[in-house]
């Protein structure tokens, strides 16, 4: 991945990362993609082979176990024959044991070899899985880079110089501010309108002119109260 990044940066800095001159052209990408697909197929096949080897290994382990059981059983037989002073019989059993032991060591040798095969195959597969993931990541980076370049080229061609993508940021900022100002004005106007509709605006102006209906009303009530009080007092 490091090498891909390096190549891309060199190309970008050198200004050769224009359309048609991309780091890895489309044809190369397709070849790369095909290689990845092939590698994936091979890996899949290897996985099946590994499964078969592992099954064989399990079967061998079972055979070894059977042989060991037989050896143990035969040894028991031989001991019993010796105890009964049947040396000839015991010897015959001993011959069987030797045969079984030979079989066991053969099976064990085969199994050790097979285990080695399984281990190295597994290691190889893990390596190629890692490599494959790395290739995929590289391909994705290269493809995304190209897509971005093609996309921006397409935008530049289509939008032309009359839209914001190619107007200067300062002009855009001025437009943003205009819109924000318009919005503010609109909000201000609607607050004003609301006031006018509810009469709050008139009240405000009356208050500003020293005419406060509410305090006038309080004064009126006070005067009335005072008047009725002086009436009852007289």
């Amino acid at each position: 991945m490091k090498s891909v990044f390096k190549k891309m940066l060199t190309a970008m800095r050198g200004g050769v990362n224009e359309l048609g001159e991309s780091v890895v052209d489309n044809q190369a990408n397709r070849i790369f993609e095909q290689e990845i697909r092939d590698a994936e197929n091979e890996l899949q096949q290897a996985r099946q082979e590994l499964a078969a080897l592992m099954a064989e290994n399990t079967s061998l382990a079972r055979q070894i176990k059977n042989t060991e059981d037989e050896i143990a059983r035969r040894e028991d037989d031989a001991r019993k024959a010796l105890a009964a002073s049947k040396e000839d019989l015991a010897r015959e059993v001993a011959e069987r044991i030797v045969e079984a032991e030979r079989q066991r060591s053969e099976l064990t040798a085969t199994r050790t070899k097979l285990q080695g095969k399984v281990d190295s195959m597994r290691e190889r597969m893990q390596k190629s899985e890692k490599q494959l993931a790395e290739y995929k990541r590289e391909l994705q980076v290269v493809k995304t880079n190209e897509r971005v370049l093609r996309t921006t080229a397409q935008i530049d061609t289509n939008i032309g110089s009359n839209q914001s993508s190619l107007t200067s940021a300062k002009t855009t900022l001025a437009r943003i501010r205009e819109r924000q100002q318009r919005l503010e004005d609109k909000q201000h106007a609607s607050v004003q309108l609301e006031k006018e509709l509810t009469g709050a605006d008139l009240d405000e102006r009356l208050k500003a002119a020293g005419i406060d209906q509410e305090s006038d009303a309080v004064e009126g009530v006070m005067a009335r109260l005072k008047a009725s009080r002086s009436e009852s007092a007289s």
Binding site: T151, Q154, I155, R179
Partner: peptide, 25 residues
Amino acid sequence: IEGKEDVLQVTVSGAEEMPVYLTAD
């Protein structure tokens, strides 16, 4: 946006000055 690539220009209300370009693979 016309062309070989699937590109959309999306303007979001309240931020019209800054169109967003969208492309997918």
